[in-house]
Design a protein around this nucleic acid. Structure first.
Length: 881
RNA sequence: GGGCGCAUAGCUCAGCGGUAGAGCGCUGCCCUUACAAGGCAGAUGUCACAGGUUCGAUCCCUGUUGCGCCCACCA
């Protein structure tokens, strides 16, 4: 373990001030919690609807109360936090609104499971009221877990506005919308085939069904007798007891004679008609289909077209209800029993087993779905989905990245009516009452339910996505026209995973446009990918590769996790993440930490105006020039949700340019002191100030600690967002580039010669009258070059970028290593010459390529020629080995 | 069955008509007083395959192969 209490030793004991307060390693655990509590106490995250500032709003995709924060949440939260923090710094009234979803079926299942395990009871044993009371208690106990995790992550949410989909306000919103839609004819009750889960004992919507390939059986059964018979193929033999027809294609000549006739249904005493329907594919199986309208969505449609009876033969648990030997059997037992009975009668013509086909499963409990004829509540989606599609089509809402919009359109343009009633107890109860004489009354939140004899309320609750669909405005106080709603609706960005476009995004669009008079709930939909493991594999319990974000936050700090997630955030694509990467981000945080320590120890400051350019050294002007460019680059990436590119740009600017070059170049300046040191101190202070502010939205904790230490100001959370100074200095950039070339070249030579990094070597620098003359001290310092003494004898001479560095290795030079290095360089230069010469010898190229490209190639050829001449000369001077 | 996307360094991914990039990993030397959670230097790619367009293709087009995802009423 690291001893975080250690202090930087200062040999002269003079550095008593701030820098000594920073230990040599960044210890996130010590500061994160304290900083977060301070931010909350100071109310930085609380948004004021009365503010004059423009609003910037994001509502959180409400996590399920059952859940805990997983890496996917951490990922999206990092991005939302970064967006709202930056906007806050830019002077917006920035609101990030937190909350949770009651997650009807998921939560109910969880509590039922717990109840069964601890008390061996079912929810029916408790009764509705006691059970929902139990769920509320459960919510109070476990619901706060994820909120604590959000604090750990550093989420800058407005806790004073925390909402829950089942709280009073949101329940009012749900009932208000329901009533309005009912009155508008957009909500209705109808008996149709729905997806029924025989375990959860509720209907679920189409998108809550997961299809997977299962091994089943395809059996061919002869229906009818003699001439009046045909063979049907089915995977669901057990439903034959509910068959009310056989369908064939109208153009199928094989069966033309049978259409309109009735044939005997085996195992029963019924006869059923043969009908012609274009739905049937003559190529599949025998070209004849058994029709069970009450237990199959296609058959239901056929049944409607041909006015067939709907015969229910399975109950809500999937047991056979038809009278006879099979009654009471579970659907899978019944399947084999019926096939066996038919086989005995010689009616089984063929059996294919296993027969792999797609079967629907309950997305909550994996139980095989039973399509079932049932009376349910529906949303008529046609007009709503049309509006939701149009809002994107006409550009009022932008989907980012744009190629995700095709998926959105696929859905909204082909959406079926939405089954919204659930036979659950945990959720918003449907506000409809039924009277003794068949009255049906839908009530708003302020209306008194009818009381007389025989009235009863609908037992069902609403699909959990119904209330989540209202989230962008219900959380702001709708249906009241609250100041919050006026100020913060419509929200700016909806940032969520592309996996819930249909569940949530499209529904929010429909409800928002409907309830808010055509104002879409957000301007931009920013879709993220899914977090995966370090090999790009899906994280799942069965793979055993699920990571608890808290583990990594404990080990490496929240900033490290956040930076890693942001670094992987290429819009719309999945995000692989591994522990090594988090470690690397931790190292980056530590690097910033130490660079700031260095700056503080050398008198870097943010006080006073920046010195004028003519007072600055070239490296000062260079880094300020680069800083301005980076500010603009970073802004562009933030605006475009390009967090990976943003992180990359800031990482490289900070590490490669500021820390590796600028800081190294200033060391000699700081050593010498005086005015130049003051100038560089001010510039370094400026660079770090801006850099820390640019990084803050992504890595809030380490930047807060360093920025407040550096500037002595209150908090970077409420600091101004940096602006590009507009200062650019091409000459300084060229000069520093040349300087880097010289230093790199000599370092390469030293490494090839096997010189120890610290070994001092006498050298003579011939910097001519070039700009590099001003950098001689820095060059000597960075390259460990001593002044040439009396007996200096150059054993190696390195010409580079117009200057020459001569070194005295006291005869110890390794000529072979040097020859190898030069030969390699020569090879590269010759390859370059060959390529460029070939291009310039191509008439088509000269005629058709743009001038600037041709010029560039010419310049490269010129450079290659010069390099070749120089290297040959150096090689010639080497003694023959 | 329909639609979309991806194949680039050992791994994970950027790039995108005009000299192949990053992070991690790897090799060598170094505890050079901001940082060994570090410094310096280095190695590694027929940019999946086959055609085409172009002066020029990793990039555009077509096809092939291999992956991945989404949608669908696959009896």
């Amino acid at each position: 373990m690291t001893d975080n209490s250690q202090r930087t030793p200062h040999s002269d004991g003079s550095d008593a001030a701030a820098p000594a307060d920073l230990p040599t390693q960044y210890a996130p655990a010590e500061v994160e919690e304290r900083l977060y509590e301070r931010w909350v106490e100071r109310g930085y995250f609380e948004a004021d609807p009365k503010s004059d500032k423009p609003a910037y709003t994001i509502v959180i995709p409400p996590p399920n109360v059952t859940g805990s924060l997983h890496l996917g949440h951490a990922f999206q939260h990092t991005l939302m936090d970064a967006l709202t923090r930056r906007k806050r710094m830019q002077g917006y009234e920035s609101l990030w609104l937190p909350g949770m979803d009651h997650a009807g079926i998921a939560t109910q299942n969880k509590v039922e499971q717990q109840l069964a395990e601890t008390e061996g009871k079912s929810r029916q044993d408790l009764g509705r009221e006691a059970f929902t009371e139990r769920v509320w208690r459960w919510k109070e106990e476990y619901g706060g877990k994820i909120l604590g995790q959000m604090r750990r992550l550093g989420d800058g949410v407005d806790w004073s506005r925390e909402r829950f989909t089942m709280d009073d306000g949101l329940s009012r919103a749900v009932q208000t919308v329901f009533k309005r839609m009912y009155d508008d004819g957009l909500i209705y009750r109808a008996e149709r085939i729905i997806n029924w889960c025989p375990r959860c004992l509720t209907a679920i919507s189409d998108i809550e069904v997961d299809y997977q390939d299962d091994d089943g059986e395809l059996v061919s059964i002869r229906y009818g007798e003699g001439e009046e018979s045909l063979v049907v193929a089915t995977t669901r033999a057990e439903t034959m007891l509910g068959d009310t027809a056989v369908a064939v294609h109208p153009d199928d000549e094989r069966y033309a004679a049978l259409v309109g006739k009735r044939i005997k249904l085996p195992l029963t005493d019924r006869t059923i008609p043969v009908v012609a329907d274009t739905h049937v594919d003559p190529e599949f199986g025998t070209g004849a289909v058994k029709v069970t309208p009450a237990h199959d969505p296609n058959d239901f449609a056929i049944g409607q077209r041909h006015d067939l009876p709907m015969l229910t033969v399975l109950d809500e648990r999937g047991n056979i209800t038809a009278h006879g030997p099979f009654q009471g059997l579970d659907r899978f037992e019944a399947r084999s029993a019926i096939v066996a009975a038919l086989r005995e009668q010689g009616r089984i013509v063929a059996e294919k087993r296993p027969y792999t086909h797609s079967v629907g499963h309950c997305s909550r409990c994996r139980t095989t779905i039973e399509p079932r004829l049932s009376l349910q509540w529906w949303v008529k989606v046609g007009p709503l989905a049309q509006a939701a599609g149009d809002a994107v089509r006409d550009g009022r809402v932008r989907i980012h990245p744009a190629d995700m919009s095709s998926r959105y359109f696929d859905w909204v343009d082909h959406m079926h009516d939405w089954c919204i009633s659930r036979q659950l107890w945990w959720g918003h109860r449907i506000p409809v009452w039924y009277g003794p004489d068949g009255e049906v009354v839908c009530l708003g939140p302020d209306e008194e339910p009818p009381t007389g004899e025989g009235w009863r309320r609908d037992e069902d609750v609403l699909d959990t996505w119904f209330s989540s669909g209202l989230w962008p405005f219900s959380t702001l106080g709708w249906p009241e026209r609250t100041p919050d709603l006026e100020k913060f609706y419509a929200t700016d960005v909806l940032l969520t995973g592309h996996d819930i476009i249909f569940f949530w995004v499209a529904r929010m669009m429909m409800f928002g446009l409907y309830a808010m008079d055509g104002t879409p709930p957000f301007h931009t939909i920013a879709l993220t990918g899914l977090v995966r493991d370090e090999h790009g594999k899906k994280m799942s319990k069965s793979f055993g590769n699920v990571v608890d974000p808290l583990d990594w936050m404990d080990a490496y700090g929240s900033d490290a996790l956040r930076f890693t997630l942001a670094s992987g955030a290429n819009p719309g694509t999945d995000v692989p993440i591994g522990e090594d990467w988090v470690k690397a981000s931790r190292n980056f945080a530590n690097k910033i930490w130490n660079a700031t320590r260095f700056a503080l120890m050398n008198g870097a400051t943010v006080e006073g105006p920046l010195p004028s350019p003519d007072e600055m050294a070239a490296e000062d002007r260079w880094i300020l020039s680069r800083l301005g460019a980076v500010v603009t680059e970073a802004d562009g990436f933030y605006e475009d949700y390009q967090f990976a590119k943003l992180s990359d740009a800031l990482y490289h600017f900070a590490w490669d340019e500021v820390f590796d070059w600028y800081v190294e170049l200033t060391k000699t300046t700081f050593q010498k002191g005086g005015r130049p040191a003051e100038v560089s101190g001010r510039v370094l202070g400026e660079v770090l100030d801006v850099l820390l502010r640019l990084l803050h939205p992504i890595v809030p904790f380490v930047t807060e600690t360093l920025w407040t230490t550096l500037t002595g100001r209150e908090s970077v959370v409420v600091a101004d967002w940096p602006a590009d100074s507009g200062y650019r200095d091409a000459a300084a950039e060229r000069e520093i580039d040349t300087l880097q070339q010289v230093i790199t070249e000599v370092r390469r030579f030293r490494a090839d010669q096997g010189l120890q990094p610290g070994q001092r070597v006498p050298a003579r620098l011939d910097l001519g009258g070039t700009a590099l003359a001003a950098h001689e001290d820095a060059i000597r310092s960075l390259l460990r070059l001593q002044p040439a003494g009396e007996e200096f004898a150059a054993t190696a001479s390195l010409p580079v970028a117009g200057v020459t560095v001569a070194l005295d290795l006291s005869g110890a030079i390794d000529f072979e290593a040097e020859r190898k290095r030069l030969t390699k360089d020569l090879g590269l230069a010759e390859k370059e010459l060959k390529q460029t010469t070939a291009k310039l010898g191509n008439e088509g190229f000269l005629a058709k390529a743009p001038d600037d490209v041709v010029d560039k190639i010419r310049a490269r050829r010129g450079q290659a020629e010069a390099d070749i001449a120089r290297i040959r000369e150096q090689l010639d001077r080497l003694p023959r080995g």
